[in-house]
Design a protein around this nucleic acid. Structure first.
Lengths: 146, 146
DNA sequence: AGGTATGGTCTCTTTCAGATACCTACTGAT
DNA sequence: ATCAGTAGGTATCTGAAAGAGACCATACCT
């Protein structure tokens, strides 16, 4: 496997990408691709926001819904179930009346915060540049249509 | 803003999460949330795979389709357009007959590889643990249903 | 009696991803 | 000369999934 053409990348990044490429090589066996298996869930959109919301402290269902903002109960329940099933989040029911439930990150869930923060950091840094690129692209396309 | 309860996190991770939390605080104005603006695209699933495929070298449309595996032309076109619009990928048409087109990462696109590699690395490391958690969860649920 | 809060589930509608067929223009093999 | 194949897509259709909103049982407060 050759070095990427983007040779200003850190060696560690290179290595991860290389491994991933090798593993994907010519396979149709995507069921065993860890990356796809882990990240392919439709819930991705809310997953990130929920994990970040829980990073600060354990939260109850309704607190989560407030913090995430515009998520519906249905999607919140569904995403939390997936996260619980994947072992990233722990659900605890307290036998009060009415019962209260809280959600907290497991050790595995906490370990996900590092890569997620890395992604969030990149998005925040790049946001202006991306918006500029979009504006330019749209300009070109609109002009091109005339 | 208090420290997260997961205090074994690197300071940098803490800082990014804290900023994100502060920024999201009580807002309904999600149009200006960089993270959501950048990551909310449905294309996320294919986006990652395409960026990784292009990390190695610029590729033509059909080469990309082969490398990514089971993506349809429609989704490939669509995802590439989004990436082009966002300034992560550059599309070049060569006036051959028939015309050939290649796609390559821009500097901005290359800068995304670091956080993506971090995410891929985490997914690869955690895959076994996640699968184990799923198996256990499913076991419990099936038993619980009886 | 009416309103609040808890943590959801159920149903309905709209949106979107994915599969398939098709297109123009060219090249090479039969 | 013609049939197949390549290249880079677009147009159309359908099944799955996301989102909106009503509903539920229970208990507290007024």
């Amino acid at each position: 496997m050759t070095r990427t053409h983007a040779s200003n990348l850190p060696d560690q990044t290179e290595a991860v990408l290389r491994d991933f490429a090798v593993q994907s090589e010519g396979k149709t066996d995507y069921a065993n691709c860890p990356v796809r298996d882990v990240l392919d869930r439709g819930g991705e959109k809310w997953t990130l926001l929920i994990l970040v919301a829980l990073a600060e402290e354990p939260k109850r269902f309704s607190a989560l819904q407030r913090d995430v903002g515009d998520i519906s109960k249905r999607m919140l329940t569904q995403t939390l179930r997936t996260l619980e099933r994947d072992g990233l989040v722990e659900r605890t029911v307290y036998p009060t009346k009415p019962p209260s439930v809280d959600y907290r990150l497991t050790a595995l869930g906490r370990s996900a915060l590092n890569p997620l923060a890395s992604l969030i950091g990149w998005a925040a840094e790049s946001h202006d540049e991306i918006r500029a690129a979009r504006a330019e692209y749209d300009e070109r396309e609109v002009v091109g249509a005339w």
